[in-house]
Amino acid sequence: MWPRIDGLRTLALGTPGELRARLNALVLSGEKTATAGLTGEYAQENEELEHVGERLALVDDHDALVGVVEITNVEVVRFADVPWDFARAEGEGDRSIEEWRAGHGAYWARQGTPVTDDSEIVCLRFRLVSSEGSVGT
């Protein structure tokens, strides 16, 4: 199971270090309003998919709260079918869907989970609720 903070599931973006710090900064600035994951990660952790309206605790490398996001949309699609508008909402500077696929494919391969066109991707859209560390509803 993923860690919890005050009853909220945590959202730990990317890998610890520079990548996570950069992705968190993009969320806190409002540039990043989406993130992608693999369905297999949920199965491994015995976690259900997020649902619309659910709030997640955005955490840093030490599982400390840096903000709270609220899920606005959840969709599972094939890697080859992730739409450009979703990829652009990730806010990571990709200039095309091909660039997004290449970057994300390489990331997951480095993590030991290579993807194919048929891999199931969880596409989460969210909005920033708080960046002060308050998890109130």
Rank of each mutant, 00 (worst) to 15 (best):
A80N: 12
A25V: 00
G7M: 14
A89S: 14
G93C: 09
L128Y: 01
R78G: 10
V68P: 00
T116I: 09
A25S: 06
V74M: 14
G105N: 09
L65E: 08
L28D: 08
A21G: 11
V66M: 15
E31Y: 01
L23S: 00
R88N: 15
E132V: 13
R125A: 12
G105L: 06
L56G: 02
E98S: 12
A34L: 11
P16G: 08
R110A: 09
R55Q: 13
G7W: 09
G40K: 12
R101K: 10
R4D: 05
T39S: 09
E41I: 07
D61C: 01
L19G: 06
D117K: 14
G133A: 08
P3H: 12
G67T: 02
R4C: 03
E98C: 04
V135K: 06
K32E: 01
L19H: 05
Y107V: 04
V74K: 08
I121M: 14
D63V: 08
V27N: 00
G17H: 06
R95D: 07
Y107N: 04
N24E: 11
E50G: 06
P3T: 06
L38S: 10
D85N: 14
H62P: 08
L28T: 04
H62R: 13
P3S: 13
V66A: 13
A34I: 12
G67P: 02
D117W: 07
G103Q: 11
W108T: 07
G93V: 04
P16T: 13
V77I: 10
E41G: 07
D94A: 09
E99I: 11
I71V: 15
A106D: 15
G133I: 09
D94T: 11
T35A: 02
F126M: 05
W100F: 12
L58P: 03
E99H: 15
V76T: 15
V59R: 02
E18G: 00
A34T: 10
V76N: 10
Y42M: 12
T39G: 11
E70C: 08
G112D: 13
P3L: 08
T116C: 06
E54Y: 08
R125L: 14
S29T: 02
V52R: 14
Y107C: 07
V74I: 15
P83L: 04
Y42L: 15
E75N: 15
K32W: 00
M1R: 10
A43H: 12
E120P: 07
G17T: 09
A106V: 03
A109W: 10
G133Q: 11
G112S: 11
P114D: 04
E132A: 14
A36R: 10
N73H: 15
P114E: 04
V122W: 09
H62A: 14
V68H: 00
S96Y: 10
V77W: 01
V77R: 07
G103W: 01
F79C: 04
S96Q: 04
D61Q: 01
L11I: 13
I121R: 03
G14W: 04
L124H: 13
A21V: 13
V68T: 01
A106G: 05
G91V: 05
A87E: 06
V77M: 05
F79K: 02
